[in-house]
Design a protein around this nucleic acid. Structure first.
Lengths: 348, 348
DNA sequence: ATCCGATGTGTGACCGGTAACACTCACGTC
DNA sequence: GACGTGAGTGTTACCGGTCACACATCGGAT
């Protein structure tokens, strides 16, 4: 049992407690304090305990900036995010935040103001200047691929939902397979053709979802109508939904995300076409509202938390093992069947 | 015109370019490079340009960690966030991310795993250890107030949507006034009583919204039925909505957030009570889906981007002016009237 | 008795910048 | 001609840690 000064040591001046204070109070060298801090094995039990007691008593907090300068590692990872408002990206970001927290890493988030090369360059610059150990890029657009590739030369990078998978390790929801499942589900219900409302050109997720739909249609040897192209927003779903509603042959529709599907649902309703009796609709993302729409929406639920975990672990893996394993992790999306899909009334 | 080495100087080893390299290449001292970097006035134009040219040629990037260690300021701010999935917090976070980016600050985001004292303590510890200049806490629950107050002793803090406004500068959506507007809107349409579905106990936003509703009812001298208490989720809105639907006197309802309102809408629909003909409903938050629900939801739209901007600027203000201005900023929410509200069929 | 290795601890340089201060030089003033 | 002044630049210490290495002590093998 060691005797110590009272716990709430006012530390004379207002200066924060540094390692030297601990060393002096414990009667050891700086190096020994450092060793205790880093759980170095070669410190005698007695010394270790004494130092730890002093650290507690003085409320010593190691200065991570100094440590980072000395070691060259900051134990923080950077995230480039483009529009963290939409449900998908926001959920992914949240997943990353939690996963990084669990891994004991700090997360530095910087926004990507636009999709042009210039702002990508500026953002990447900022991040590389800011001394992060690695970067996770939520870069859903193909345009950004090049800028990120340049970045990857300097720093470990993991790309999320991006077309970079040939160049850097990537983690992504399995859009393709999800879309295929959605389309198959509709085909298996007996629909002869599945229409598609796609996401905007240039977005990897949009392209993959369209490809999955196309693949399922090709497998079933059904006709493949031209997809309509929206911009992810509910408004575009509504607008294009009104257009689709005029097509009397429309009985099944795969919409590239739930927000657009919501607009479609409303458009169909206003046009007097009932869902699912007249038209079956499948969305993608499983937004919180999906289960409570009229009717509850059949959709695909990506595991965003898993995407976060996988991307953090892929990055950490890169940090430890120098030759990064060049693989793309695909996180599955599961089909949630609700009430917006059914067999067509008169199978044609 | 100065002659320079070829731009893509391979820099011999792979070691990053540091200030000393620039100094040597430009034939000046470290200090002069530092002055150029920090736009110090007393550097001759000629020298400044030469140094800048060298910096560009060598692709020099200042090491922010070293700078932080020397200056004691990191130019980064920490954010404590609790559940960044729900629409409100996610939008606020997004607003902060953008505002911090514009202000040239980096943002370090750490999750708050639970609402208990212990995890709050651990999170706060982590952040204070991590050398941020200040902290923005998205702390929507009253329980967290004390932990945060302790933190504020060590570091500048701005609280968001929290009950801390008496202790630290705070920024919050004007929940009270928003709720009052919502309730008044219903009363002005001719409803004699406005029911209320509240958010969970312990949440500041829930309490404020309930108080606003109560205030409007008191002003109009109408009766104030006991509010039902949900947990923000659509599911709870649905469950409690079914209960409310059984009350024949129900003609107007103010729901504490849109997600619960969505559940209520569905419950009312299933119970055969039409909105707005039989029951008028007002929500809060203006989630993206709100405009496309059946019927489009009348709700309050908080300016989340503004909350982000205000909180960042409040924090930066604290960093510059030592005696912080002890004020609470209230960001207004605007009433968006859509089609879920109307006059009662038979004004009672 | 000597040498060895393992264990525990301390010393000095270093990470990459910035701050305080010192110095030189040209200019204008008395 | 001595002196103060301000511009422009360099010197040195320092921020708070870590790393490589040196050193002392001790038990056991030779």
């Amino acid at each position: 049992m060691t005797t110590l000064d009272p716990p709430a040591e006012p530390s004379a001046t207002d200066r924060p407690v540094v390692m030297a204070d601990v060393a002096k109070a414990a009667g050891v060298s700086l190096q020994t304090v450092s060793r205790v801090l880093n759980a170095h094995p070669r410190v005698s039990l007695e010394t270790r305990q004494r130092v730890q007691a002093v650290m507690r008593a003085l409320e010593y907090r190691p200065n991570s900036t100094a440590r980072a300068l000395a070691t060259g590692r900051t134990r923080s990872i950077g995230v480039v995010t483009f529009d963290a408002t939409r449900y998908g990206p926001a959920s992914t970001l949240s997943g990353i935040i939690n996963a990084a927290g669990e891994a004991g890493y700090l997360l530095t988030v910087v926004p990507l103001p636009g999709t042009d090369r210039l702002s990508a360059r500026a953002t990447v610059d900022r991040l590389s200047r800011s001394s992060v150990d690695g970067i996770i890029a939520i870069a859903p657009q193909q345009e950004l691929a090049h800028s990120l590739y340049g970045l990857a030369q300097q720093l470990p990078v993991v790309a999320l939902d991006s077309s970079l998978e040939e160049y850097v390790p990537a983690v992504a929801v399995d859009e393709f397979e999800g879309a295929r499942q959605a389309t198959r589900h509709l085909l298996e219900l007996g629909h002869s053709t599945v229409h598609h409302l796609a996401g905007p050109t240039g977005w990897v997720a949009a392209r993959e979802r369209t490809e999955g739909w196309r693949a399922a249609a090709a497998e079933a040897k059904t006709s493949v109508p031209d997809p309509l192209i929206g911009d992810w927003t509910t408004e575009s779903g509504y607008r294009l939904g009104r257009e689709l509603a005029r097509d009397p042959d429309l009985t099944a529709l795969f919409v590239a995300n739930d927000e657009m599907a919501l607009g479609v649902l409303r458009a169909l309703h206003e046009s007097g076409r009932r869902v699912p009796e007249d038209v079956s609709v499948v969305g993608f993302d499983d937004i919180p509202a999906a289960a409570y729409l009229a009717p509850p929406l059949t959709t695909l639920r990506p595991d965003f938390a898993e995407v976060g975990r996988e991307s953090v672990s892929a990055l950490l893996h890169q940090l430890d093992h120098d030759p990064p394993s060049w693989q793309t992790v695909r996180v599955p999306a599961s089909l949630i069947v609700r009430h917006s899909t059914s067999s067509p009334r008169r199978p044609s």
